[in-house]
Design a protein around this nucleic acid. Structure first.
Lengths: 115, 115
DNA sequence: ATAATATACAACCAAATGGTTGTGCGAATG
DNA sequence: CATTCGCACAACCATTTGGTTGTATATTAT
């Protein structure tokens, strides 16, 4: 199956990195990657109000890093690893840029040493 | 040469992702990767005040994504690709976690199908 | 039917963000 | 020396963030 990567708007990328810029949210992502779980089960893990955790999950959801799925009266939070990959690919692209630049510099230096 | 990766505090990671959560700042990183340049030469590229760009560079600097180096009256902004790599490695670790989980699920499913 | 549970959501607050303008100061140029 | 250039920094402002509490709603359990 081929999946076309939708072109990401700046806003999407902003949302992803912003969501990852908080230790609690990164921890939530790690937890739901290991095992999907309800919002309240997540909330139990942190020294803050339920509503605060709920908001963190909402931020992750807006960034498409997690998805919520209702099950009875619970809301189960799943990871969406595709979004993580998108973010990683962006960083990889920047690193590639760097390697190309470094290679270009090397070429120039090798070309005409001490002329 | 062996480089020991200093353990990153949550705050460091927060700073890196926060710095990347803005299109202007990501663009600045890309530009200085391609060619290091002065703050004012960067500022010329954006439709905002010099001070605003200066602040963006400061955010990137706090995150160690760029380094400034004085040259005469100019301040030359360089990329620090090591920090980019750190961020990428973090995302990779999360993705690895996911792959392990997926593998564990596969194992369970294969173990006892339809008992 | 009542109570308890899981979530949603609004209102509120302090602090941080992302922008502005203005002021000052060291370095280069005329 | 006077001026201009590149930058730093402070003050200010609107908006967003990350937390709180309180209220409402739907679902399960007694």
């Amino acid at each position: 199956m081929v999946v076309r990567m939708a072109t990401m708007s700046d806003g999407d990328v902003d949302a992803i990195f912003h969501a990852l810029a908080d230790a609690t949210r990164r921890d939530i992502v790690a937890r739901v990657i290991e095992r999907e779980q309800s919002v309240s089960s997540l909330a139990a893990a942190y020294a803050m109000s339920f509503a605060a955790v709920q908001k963190h999950v909402a931020v992750l959801e807006r960034a498409s890093l997690v998805v919520k799925q209702r099950r009875g009266r619970e809301q189960i939070v799943h990871a969406d690893p595709a979004t993580l990959e998108r973010a990683r690919l962006l960083l990889e692209r920047l690193e590639t840029l760097w390697r190309h630049r470094a290679a270009a510099i090397d070429r120039v230096l090798a070309e005409d040493p001490e002329t």
